[in-house]
Design a protein around this nucleic acid. Structure first.
Lengths: 210, 210, 210, 210
DNA sequence: ACCAGCGGGACTCCCCGTTGAT
DNA sequence: ATCAACGGGGAGTCCCGCTGGT
């Protein structure tokens, strides 16, 4: 599973790979950060380019599709980051409930460290987008599906029945996004902590029961 | 079960408040709808005004604070709507788990009916906003706090301990937002259904236990 | 001479004359001050009304011609003020050169006291106006003519031949406006002082010669 | 006297700089003309752009500071023009009094030719600006200082003592601005002629005396 | 008669995302 | 792979009538 989407970024530059972030990568990083903070419509290209300090034309060179294409790529890279975080948690904590706790804890720290400025780039773009933004929607759909799948597999491995695992995975993603959102506007991490506590307890009960 | 839905949309009491929605109200409604579909930055004032068919200057007249002030008012009205919906569900279904089911079911219908275009206006603005947008953040913070409190009181009335009730309320809001988000980008209601199922089961177990 | 323009303002309110400035008068004063500081286009009516704290409709009531008519009236009142200042100087100093010195000195003080914000309202409007602004231009033409005439009469009384007196009056007005302008942008009164010195010396020579 | 005016408007040297005025230059010229006619606040950018027939975004491209920056540049170019005119007059007429006569005469012609629409761009902006408009004020201060210095040097070269020269220069600038202003609102050149006559006479007396 | 306010559009300046020539 | 050009909105707010209350 997760076999499509093979090696997202390193398409070009066979040799010059590891030498400084590279304009393209800096653009992606800048866009990602911007999505986290203000969403797609909230960012100006000029600001983005300034922050990546790249001249105007470079963007269209690397991303012929313009702002949208850059956003799509940034979204994909965001998923990779989240998955990596999840994997790290799962490696460290064999029990999914523990891993979930760790994951939510990490997110709280990340949020608080940014002064409650950074949210989830996926959620932000998801809410700004309309069904007409097909490229974005596709990327987003893919992103959430990947996340749910990854979590579902883990839960299934603990003995939950397949549909139950999938549904629980959906709830976990939902709770993560919703709690992050509440914590961000509140300017404190209580919402995330509360959500994690209740969710983890329920999950533990469920798994023990299975 | 399923009583006749007596008061679906109580728009017009015969004579009293029927004197046309009024420019101000039309503006609020237009903004609310826009926030649901595309968020604050995604809407142009001109489009808004066209939809409410009002001239430019009127907005400035009714909302000296401009777009932001209008958004704040729209947010407040959104909260009122949600609260009203909640109350209706709670009146009809005494057990919170049933009410939750009904509420999530209503949200699914609302979403699907709009062709998966309408999301939650609170969430959208929440993710677009930065800590600098103090007016918006305050309104949002207030809005979520009100929601959590309302849910928390209901849960406490069922025997949950105060902190547990509060935490569960937070989770419910989070799950609602996160599931709506996933369903919207997916273009189908599975995520909301799954989320509701798992959450309701867990809640029922919790309440029975208390 | 100077017989037209009899008693400009006190048209209405035969008895209630002296009781508080009155809305109309406050509007005129606010406009006059605004013209001095930023010119006609630089002022917004709303700001003006706020400063005079009068509601919107009042302006249109007192000045059916709107902003322009208010400006015209303000210009006339400005001329009256200048003439009054001139008269005061002439009464105190019989020799025109002394009076001129006093007048320019007063203007310097007035300018410096306002933090170099106040200029001459006549000049400002004069430069903003186009030949199409007939009402303004007429008022302005009248205003400068009145000033020149008044000065010319005084000079003629000192023995200058009529055309010489008129020409000298024109120069005096010109020098006043030009020096005020230079001092205002420089933020110090040197230009006015220098101008006054040279001009007064030349005038004295001229008069002694006549 | 009156040599053939060999280089009236040196627009096109055959090949070198004839490659169209360039958008930037057209914008400056349009702004300069607008400042002369109606001042900074009186001009709309759209009108300006139409007149220079340039698209909207170009302005921001060439003048990141927007309208103000364009105005500053226009002011500088105005000073250059005035200085050039002065130099031409001084080259042709060695005696400053003659040069002054020629200069004022040229200004009269320029004014009348425009149907009394064109004033001095420096003066107009000077009167509209407030101390808060630091960029404009600085440019203006600079402009007038340059003019005064140039005139002062010339006068000093004729034997006037340094401070006298400076003061006379100030008066000359003041008289120029003030006379132009009066002529413009009057719609005839009498004020300028009168001012020039008196001023030249006084200057001649002063120089002969030195 | 005087005042108040809601309503009405036409602009204001700014700046955005994008494309061609260089 | 850079810079000039391109228009099309972005929000804002201007100045002005009308229509009702007093």
């Amino acid at each position: 599973m997760t076999p499509p989407r093979p090696d997202v970024t390193p398409t070009l530059t066979p040799a010059a790979e590891a030498e400084a972030p590279g304009t393209r990568e800096r653009l992606i990083a800048a866009m990602l950060e911007a999505l986290r903070r203000r969403g797609l419509h909230g960012v100006g290209l000029s600001e983005l380019l300034a922050r990546a300090d790249a001249p105007k034309g470079v963007l269209y060179h690397h991303f012929p599709g313009g702002k949208t294409e850059l956003a799509v790529v940034a979204i994909r890279s965001a998923v990779d980051q989240v998955l990596a975080g999840l994997d790290r948690a799962l490696v460290r904590y064999p029990h999914p409930a523990d891993a979930l706790t760790a994951w939510m804890g990490g997110a709280q720290k990340f949020l608080a460290d940014s002064g409650f400025e950074r949210g989830c780039p996926l959620a932000t773009v998801a809410l700004e987008s309309t069904p007409q933004d097909t490229a974005l929607r596709a990327a987003l759909h893919d992103a959430f599906a990947t996340l749910r799948e990854r979590l579902g597999l883990t839960l299934a491995a603990c003995g939950l029945p397949p549909e139950g695992a999938r549904a629980w995975a959906t709830l976990m993603v939902a709770a993560y996004e919703g709690a992050l959102l509440q914590s961000r506007v509140a300017g404190d991490t209580t919402a995330m902590r509360d959500t994690a506590d209740v969710l983890v307890a329920a999950l533990r009960a469920q798994i023990d029961l299975a």
